[in-house]
Computed example of a mutant assay.
Amino acid sequence: MAEVGTFTYRMLGFKNKPVNHYIRPFYLEVAKSVKIKHFCHGSKRIHEIFINWLKEGLITNVGRPFFTFGFFSGYSHNTNDCVGLLDEDNVDFLKYMNSLGLLKNTFVLLMSDHGARYGNLRQTEQGKLEERMPYFGIFVPPEFRKEHPNKYIAFLENTKKLVTPFDIYETFMEINEEKNEYKPTDRTSYSLFSNIPMERTCQSAGIEAHWCACLAWKNTSVSENHVINTARESVNMFNEMIGEYSIMCHKLDLKHITRAIKLESNENVLKFKESKDIDGRIADMSAKTKPLQAFYQITMETTPGNVTSSVDLQSGQVFISKEDISRINKYYDAPKCIVKRKPELRPYCVCKENI
């Protein structure tokens, strides 16, 4: 979408070519073609031309330091229907990089600028979260991992923390080992190879409340209907799992619910309807979006035994994943009759005395 490029959408662009290789003029001409509506230019799809151009840049610079930035949004700007057209060629491009030996010492960033902004999905809580949390992935080359093991450990830990696009700038400065004397904003930003505070908040990161996608666990009553139904469904599932071995294992009954917490949505996100201004700085908070899902984590005790279950609750129906169940008391010899035959049932089986 060269007509709305990063530096030319409501801006003046460049007087002189800003880089060694600049594909925008080519795509401005391609955009004049009628076939562009079908994502084709001649016999090739426009993304193939783009990826081939990136490949030419790679082979030209093998053995020399280089930086390439390519952004392709023609298939996905208004809808995600055609994103799949890119999948195989994206994979082939990464394989091509690997065949040139570039992945040994080259950082690769795969990213998008935002999620769904139009259509029915955008009006749901899920759509609003996607709009605020675009995909961002980094491949850290083996040479960097070996030379800077502590930085790589910090990077892995930061995948579980709040990060923002402003942190990418700081990360580039660290990769280039440059002292960052220029700050792009007055907000606090971090390199992804530094120790980002776990307690970092949207406010400290300079994220406006209606753009903050952070969720919070809050205590909820153990007498709430959804909590009770979830606990009962959990126990039913446990008994179904051990059903084949019921001659060896006791049937479990719900004794009591110890604690329940609920993952609550950000009210500012739910109320956000759209931006009143073209730059997205002024928010229209008149939306009345209702969450379609509620997530509960419940600690309960069964007789005999106890477990913790984390569940997804939608429209009153309980959904439980086996992967989200944790037993928090010691097994001791309770599941000894099942250990060798069915070890995955240890959290749920309490062996009968005469077995």
Rank of each mutant, 00 (worst) to 15 (best):
A2R: 05
T6I: 15
Y9R: 09
L12Q: 10
K15F: 15
A31L: 09
K37E: 03
K37D: 01
H38P: 03
H38K: 08
H38Q: 12
F39I: 00
G42S: 09
G42R: 03
I46N: 03
T60Q: 01
F66H: 07
T68V: 10
Y75V: 06
Y75M: 09
S76M: 07
D81W: 10
L85C: 00
L86V: 06
G101N: 02
F107V: 09
F107G: 05
L110M: 09
N120M: 06
Q126I: 04
P134D: 12
V140N: 03
P141M: 10
R145Q: 04
K146P: 00
K146T: 10
K146R: 08
Y152C: 06
Y152G: 00
T159M: 11
T159R: 03
I168Y: 11
N176R: 08
E177N: 12
Y182K: 05
F193W: 02
I196P: 01
E199K: 00
R200D: 06
A209L: 06
W211I: 06
L215F: 07
W217S: 08
V227E: 06
E233G: 09
M237F: 15
F238G: 00
G243D: 15
I247A: 14
L252E: 07
D253W: 11
H256S: 12
L263Q: 05
L270H: 00
K276N: 12
K276M: 13
R281G: 10
I282V: 13
S286K: 11
K288S: 13
K288E: 15
T289F: 10
K290S: 14
L292M: 12
P304E: 12
T308N: 11
S309V: 15
Q314A: 14
V318G: 04
K322E: 15
D324V: 07
Y332G: 08
P335I: 01
